[in-house]
Design a protein around this nucleic acid. Structure first.
Lengths: 149, 149
DNA sequence: TTGCTCCTCACGTCACGTGAGGTGGC
DNA sequence: TTGCTCCTCACGTCACGTGAGGTGGC
């Protein structure tokens, strides 16, 4: 039985919490590689007051994505940069598609509702115009007690 | 004055028309590089019956795109491959956005038209239902010659 | 024959990763 | 003091481009 305790901490994914050795281990990279990536502008960790790099959860995830592209796909850093940019653009566009689809659905429903409303008011108008006719008939056939004018 | 004649030929952009030396010159690449790219699966020119590579206009454009990524951006071929794939996906998504926008506009117009149609038919109904009312009034105020029932 | 094509092999260059080496502050 | 951090420099490896070298068919 292991005596190791597992501690789960919930922190803002953008908050710098890991020093370079930890971030490197989490991303399965050499610490020096992380420094190099920063110099190349691929990653921008926070810094402590003393100048120590502090990587956030989001930073580590980005590093793992980079690691995947370089190690598994064999891409160089210029390619990684371009791909990260394109993926971001693609994600934005995908969100736009979803937004448009939702909007179209809402528009359709709204229009349906308005059509229904118009139809209902039309029926109401028909009733209103029938009612005076009926009232007239009643007036003529059955004399009411109170009769104005 | 130059005696060089400029000939403009219009051909299917997917038809193989350039031999490797011409394609290489148009793409500003070394012929050997084109052979390498083919081996790597980045480009797939047609072949003549004798086995000579025949590059289409589309092939040349693709080569120029690759040239831009490798020479200008310094990307390696793994990155080029990934970027080409992502750009294709992005383009498809962009077309989808345009399609959705057009569809939404058409839907809006169509719904507007239907609403208008319902309103018009409603007005028609009102007129039709007012008419008998008016007739009743006339019946009461001015006795008609022919009176059914 | 000339100039292209095809192919394979090999080498130079450059990017990238990583290790060494020296420094400084919890 | 130990173990981390910071930095710069340098070297090994590998991908890529390109040249050489030999072949064959319009």
């Amino acid at each position: 039985m292991s005596r190791r305790r597992v501690i789960t901490a919930t922190v803002d994914s953008d908050r710098g919490v890991f020093m370079i050795s930890v971030a490197a281990e989490l991303a399965e990279m050499h610490p020096q590689t992380l420094r190099m990536y920063e110099q190349r502008g691929l990653i921008a960790p926070k810094r402590s007051a003393g100048g120590t790099r502090l990587y956030s959860q989001a930073d580590v995830e980005r590093l793992r994505r980079i690691q995947q592209m370089t190690a598994e796909l064999g891409m160089n850093l210029a390619g990684v940069e371009k791909v990260l940019e394109l993926e971001e653009r693609l994600e934005r566009t995908n969100r736009r598609v979803e937004q448009l689809e939702r909007r179209a659905e809402r528009l359709r429903e709204e229009m349906e509702a308005r059509l229904e409303e118009v139809r209902r008011s039309q029926r109401a108008e028909i009733v209103r115009y029938q009612a005076p006719g009926t009232a007239l008939i009643h007036q003529r056939v059955v004399p009411r007690r109170s009769n104005p004018t």
